[in-house]
Amino acid sequence: MPTKQLALNGTADCSLCGALNEAWPFRAALVSAPVAHPEEALVGEAACYDHPEARAVTACQLCGRFLCPLCSVEIGAEVLCPSCVASGKVAAARLNPSLTLFDSIALTLPLASLIIYPFLVVAAPASLVLSALRWKKPLSPVRRNRWRFVVAIVVSLIEIGLMAWGIVYLIAAATHGGSNQ
């Protein structure tokens, strides 16, 4: 992209495809990324747990292992070692690159079983159990309310109620039919 044209107008035509581009460059574009160069540990100095030849500069805030600049993983204000990060001991919602949306599953189960009705017997109680088990667990970093769980519980309870009424009705009809004869 022609930078001079970009600096003047804020827009520039792509030199390859001709499409109109708008670009906002920021200061980070001018700064070279810092490279971690661990210093060699001298005799008597604390060394990194994974690199015995490198000088330790910090310790993991969970397991206490000494870490060189190469091994220290900064997550917000915390400094952790790669194995603690990999073990999932730290704030799951912050580190996990993905989460399963149990509230969406709980909502879909009773609604989808209305179409595939033979599964209603299993789906409605399953949705209730899932909603109860997952109610207090974090949903997702961006979902704040639990309306899907609420709707899932209400729909499941209605379905279970209707199923129970149907069973009672059938039993009553069978009993009445039997006593009339």
Binding site: A19, L20, N21, A23, S98, T108
Partner: peptide, 20 residues
């Protein structure tokens, strides 16, 4: 649908945003 994936971009690391 039943899964969310997240990617974080620290404000200090963003070099540019382009709209084509």
């Amino acid at each position: 649908r039943f899964r969310e994936e997240y990617k974080r971009f620290h404000l200090g690391d963003i070099q540019a945003i382009a709209i084509a």
